[in-house]
Design a protein around this nucleic acid. Sequence first.
DNA 1: GCCCATTTGTACGTATGTATG
DNA 2: GCATACATACGTACAAATGGG
Lengths: 69, 69
Amino acid sequence: MPVYQQLAAILRERIERGDLPPNRPIPSVARLQQEYGLARGTILHTVRVLVDEGLVYVVPGKGTFVKEP
Amino acid sequence: MPVYQQLAAILRERIERGDLPPNRPIPSVARLQQEYGLARGTILHTVRVLVDEGLVYVVPGKGTFVKEP
DNA sequence: GCCCATTTGTACGTATGTATG
DNA sequence: GCATACATACGTACAAATGGG
């Protein structure tokens, strides 16, 4: 499985578990880069997947937030 | 060599030459953008390099200053 | 105390180049 | 050739700290 899919799965799990609650920001791209040792592009790819799935939404200049279920 | 490394080298040289003296602010991010025609992110990257090297220190809201040798 | 300009900090979007399988 | 992944660079937006009027 591609890394960006693996990371998407991890974040999905963290959201469903409540570790990342609704209307709260998920870790920033830079933070996720550090946490998982991945490149910026890969993080952005992952976030794009979650956005397309409707799990999170982006507020430019502020962050990426978990949608309500 | 990456642009941010090139700019870091230029500023290092200006510091060592005394063009940018200790305890005085280096040009602001906006100023460096204009002077060198670079993007904000690239300037910030460069400053981060110099901070990590211990050549300068940042005072948020005021500026970036040259450390004493 | 309040507004405003300046400056740094943080964050996402997009594009390009390189390397690998 | 293509998808994946990393590094770099530019663009834009919002936020916080500082200082002057």
